[in-house]
Simulated assay, not measured.
Amino acid sequence: MSHRTSSGQGFRIATLLMSCWAFAGCEDQPRRAAANTAAPAPIEVTVLTVQRRDIPVTSVLPGRTAPYRAAEVRPQVGGLLRERFFSEGEAVKAGQPLFQIDPAPFEAAVQRAQAALARIQAVEQAAASTANRLRTLARSQFASEQNLENAEAALRQAQADVVSARAALETARIDLGYTRVTSPIDGRTGRATVTPGALVTANQTTALVTVTQLNPIYVDLTQPSAVLLQQRRDVASGALRRDSADRAVARLLLEDGSEYPHPGEVQFAEVIVDQGTGSVTVRAVFPNPDQLLLPGMFVRARIEEGVTDRALLVPQRAVLRTPRGEPMAFVVNSEGVVEQRVLAASRAIGNDWLVTAGLSPGDRVVIEGLQRIRVGARVKANERPAAPAGT
């Protein structure tokens, strides 16, 4: 009897425990469902607040160096080359002797011209004496007017002969001076094409030597004509400020990637567009005191076109492309929701895009976390300070 009672009590206790567990499970199920339907945490992104500021606008153009002045030295008289006064490759000054042509024939020509002048001067003196005497006799009517006129005509002819003889003497002296060939400019000599003992002729096609002035030096750059026109429009409209409308500062990047230490200045742009390339030549001049730049070197020039305060800088990594190929960026609005903006980006400045439309000052552009967001997503924006322009 007691055994049955114990079994019944155990069954009731087990049933009660199972009911409690079932009740507890029913209470936990709504809690788990509520937890599963809770809103996800906002995605964290890094944003940059864009602001208008003065931004230097630069462009990089390819080009080659060209000599500031180059003089091909040719003889102006013919003769036997007797001596060379310079070493190839050395620096020379304007007026410094380079070659000596045999002067003997030209010295003789000077002496002949001097003798001819002396003879004509003697004739002039005799004609002047005869004319003076006949003028006195004519006043006393002891000489005819015809004789006086003939005497005065002979005097004028003698005077003209004197002028001609003096010019011939001066020409002979100039030719004698040309026997010493001098440098027309300051510069550095190249290879000599003749040696002493060679016979040269006046104004021959082959230069004796070329003298090149290297300081300063020109750099001829190539720029698309469309870009040049846009620059001029920007300067005229005030979108681009420049100290001078025609001059801009330029800096050189050499072939090895190093920067040339001396800044230069843009002088002018050609007025003729190359039909084959659609570009114009822009000439800049650079100081070259160490003669580091040599004619014919390939360089790149960074031209400082001016300063603009009407555009915004956006990091290049923040600018994506739409399916149509248009530049776009994600912007976080005041409610923390992502929006898409189509941009107008005119040029790259360093690691940034210069944006002229599509953004407003104060917009927060997403620069990190782009892969995790979409339009309409709610995000947590972490601000990053703006970097200096062009970095």
Rank of each mutant, 00 (worst) to 15 (best):
L80P: 07
R64S: 13
V273K: 06
A158Q: 10
E149F: 08
A239N: 15
V211I: 13
L134K: 06
I101D: 05
R69A: 15
L208K: 00
A269T: 13
A41I: 01
R310Q: 15
T46E: 14
R384A: 14
V299P: 13
N333G: 08
A128M: 10
E265P: 03
Q371G: 11
S6Q: 12
I373T: 08
E259R: 14
A386L: 12
L48S: 09
L221S: 09
R180N: 00
A104F: 08
V342H: 08
V355E: 06
N351G: 03
D102W: 01
R378P: 11
Q230C: 01
L294A: 12
A35Y: 04
L354C: 10
E270D: 15
L343P: 05
T206F: 01
A128K: 09
V337C: 06
E83R: 12
D28F: 14
T171S: 14
L240A: 10
V319I: 09
D175I: 06
V319R: 03
S19Q: 11
A239I: 00
A70L: 13
T182A: 01
T5D: 13
A131Y: 02
A160I: 01
V375Y: 06
D274Q: 09
S144A: 05
A128E: 15
Q340M: 12
F268Y: 14
D256P: 01
V280Y: 08
A192C: 04
V219A: 13
L117G: 06
S59R: 06
T15S: 13
G10E: 14
W353H: 11
Q111Y: 01
A202H: 02
A198Q: 04
D54R: 12
A127E: 13
R317T: 12
A34T: 07
A91R: 12
E44F: 02
A248L: 07
T212H: 04
F286G: 09
E383Y: 00
T58W: 07
A35I: 10
R12T: 11
A118N: 10
V379T: 08
R232T: 07
S59L: 08
S279F: 04
V337W: 01
S7Q: 14
R283D: 09
S164D: 14
V319W: 05
T189P: 01
E270S: 15
V163Y: 03
S258Q: 12
A381D: 13
A172K: 02
I185M: 03
D243R: 11
R119W: 03
R324S: 15
F142R: 11
E305A: 10
S346L: 10
A301K: 04
T205V: 11
M18C: 12
Q76H: 10
A41H: 08
R317E: 13
